[in-house]
Design a protein around this nucleic acid. Structure first.
Lengths: 339, 339
DNA sequence: TTGAGTCGATTCAACGTTGTAAAGTAGGCG
DNA sequence: CGCCTACTTTACAACGTTGAATCGACTCAA
């Protein structure tokens, strides 16, 4: 089968430890010896057994990324960013899908498989404040995403409230007066829906506009179909509005679709803004205004924090980082003749 | 640190091998002993060290999935399907992004990291027929996707030619006479672009319609923007056509967008069909007709074949499986009042 | 010339697990 | 009562690697 240090040593005529020293660039190896060993390595096509190395060294060179589902575009783009950020540090990424199911989210942290990696980047959806004490595992954890936990883990979060406020203000700045919301979660306070709704309300308050829950449509999931259904709902109710804040891009896309079917022009009759800056928002008709929550920065920060904690598991206090966001105006709010 | 077999053994007052026997459901363990051991396991929160188990057993319980990029929706949905299929067999998935770069695709197979998994599900884009001999690694490989290799690996491919032919025939059946193609690759024969174009030509031949390369637009990449640019190109050339076959869904979406901007009604003026059955094609305006290439079946077949080959690396001849496809008519070809 | 110090290579143990083989403990039967 | 068998537990070695300690040879300064 595959060659081992011992095989190489036999061919090179040295001890297997000398081969190990060559591979690990140990300083005290004679050049002639090194050459002999390298020749033998090439000859046998030797590759180090990373499993054995992991057992000996205690770390694997892999991290786990746990997220709801890759077929949700936001998480696919997040995973892309995390994999690239990890690759820069020589880490490989193992992906676990939780389906936003609370039981599976807890299982991820409890599974012995987690120890096949050195740390966990975790984007939970179903876990809430009440689960704070359950957020722990045999490896360091960095929590991503929108929720706030009382846990002792590191967090990388987007600025949901402030960013949502900025998105709303963008609509207000365009002279919109009645801004509908698509995608609220009934009664939620600390989830991303709740936080973004809070930002929306703050923006209204800032301009002295009363909050009207008659133009706030609730949904269960954040899929395109839910956005479409919510917009149908608003239209059926006869709600009047001149702008829509979709709490994420897919919801906004669903809403745009229904508005267009119903004969409304976007943005002239109704301006629409989303949230997430998915790649595809650049290519819809009209292109979708949105908020870039700093996905690349989230990924890179998460990896950096995780590596710091892997290196020093207990020396650091729990940290919370909020990434920079940016409102991205596109055709769905400012029309086709933008800069 | 984490408890080991020895720690559990000490607490339970047995040898560490007995603990191992309990964990592995060894038949001859006295009930009272088992109970003692299980109590100690619970007490210490013992979890087996999978790295050590891997070293000893020679397999890891993980597989590698190598693909171009997760932010491309097709591959995100493929990854989702592969992860779910793997999970059914108790396997976890490690993802490598190649960026469709030939060098990185070769590196994936050569990297010692690959041995941290038991097998490779590989969806190459840059490797071609001439690289057939380079398709090999220290672990079994199942190749996915559109290319054909002379390699000795297992393949799971979609029926590109037949499915593209069916897509084209769907347009012909609607009475369309001049079907433009968006997304061809200049001179390509055996890639997915080449194969799908062949299916298109076969369909035309079958109806005695001459092939006109004046309505076949070539692109470099298969992104939405390329589809848009290609459609711009066709319109600028003054090409006349009453239908468009986008060689994948994102290309088709880009094309639809440009058509709509240019004032064409889809499907009344121009019918459009894509390829891949991305989730989002259900929510565009109009919803996009497409071809479901059997993604779930691809994933499940690939995992099944990979497991068979892991179990018996040399006993099986190279196999090639083609999955079933299905034309999915939606609004972009048959209009809004469909069944 | 000798002792200290460096270089180069080796030996040994350990990481935590499982397979093999052997050892110990009953129970059953002649 | 002793022996054979089946059951239960244990001891030991291995998986392939790296770190610690060791050892010989050589260099240099005293």
């Amino acid at each position: 089968m595959a060659a081992t240090l011992h095989d190489v040593a036999r061919v090179a005529g040295v001890s297997f430890k000398t081969v190990s020293n060559v591979i690990n660039n140990h300083p005290h190896v004679r050049d002639t010896t090194r050459a002999k060993v390298e020749k033998a390595i090439a000859e046998l096509g030797y590759r180090p057994n990373l499993t054995a190395r992991s057992l000996r060294s205690g770390h694997t060179g892999a991290i786990t990324l746990a997220l709801p589902q890759l077929s949700l575009p936001y998480f696919a783009e997040l995973a892309d960013a995390v994999i690239e950020a990890a690759a820069k540090h020589g880490l490989v990424v193992l992906i676990e899908q939780t389906g936003a199911d609370r039981k599976r989210e807890l299982e991820v942290m409890a599974s012995p498989r987690l120890k096949m990696s050195d740390g966990l980047v975790f984007s939970p959806l179903a876990l809430g404040q009440e689960d704070a004490d359950l957020i722990k595992a045999d490896v360091p954890i960095v929590l991503l995403g929108e929720r706030i936990f009382g846990s002792s883990s590191d967090h990388v979060t987007m600025q949901n409230v402030t960013a949502a406020r900025a998105a709303t203000e963008h609509l207000l700045d365009l002279g919109k007066k009645r801004i509908a919301v698509v995608g609220a979660h009934e009664g939620e306070v600390i989830g991303s829906a709740g936080l973004r709704l809070r930002g929306y309300r703050e923006a209204l308050e800032g301009r002295g506009i009363p909050y009207d829950d008659g133009i706030v449509a609730c949904v269960v999931d954040w899929h395109r179909s839910n956005g479409a259904a919510a917009m149908h709902d608003l239209l059926d109710r006869g709600a009047s509005f001149d702008a829509v804040f979709g709490l994420n891009d897919t919801l906004a896309q669903g809403a745009v679709r229904v508005l267009q079917e119903a004969g409304y022009r976007v943005p002239d009759d109704v301006a629409v803004i989303g949230f997430d800056d998915l790649d595809e928002t650049r290519y819809t008709l009209p292109t979708l205004s949105t908020v870039d929550p700093g996905r690349t920065e989230i990924a890179e920060t998460a990896i950096r924090m995780l590596m710091e904690r892997i290196k020093d598991p207990d020396g650091l206090p729990p940290r919370e980082v909020e990434t920079a966001f940016r409102v991205v105006p596109r055709e769905s709010t400012v029309g086709a003749n933008r800069g």
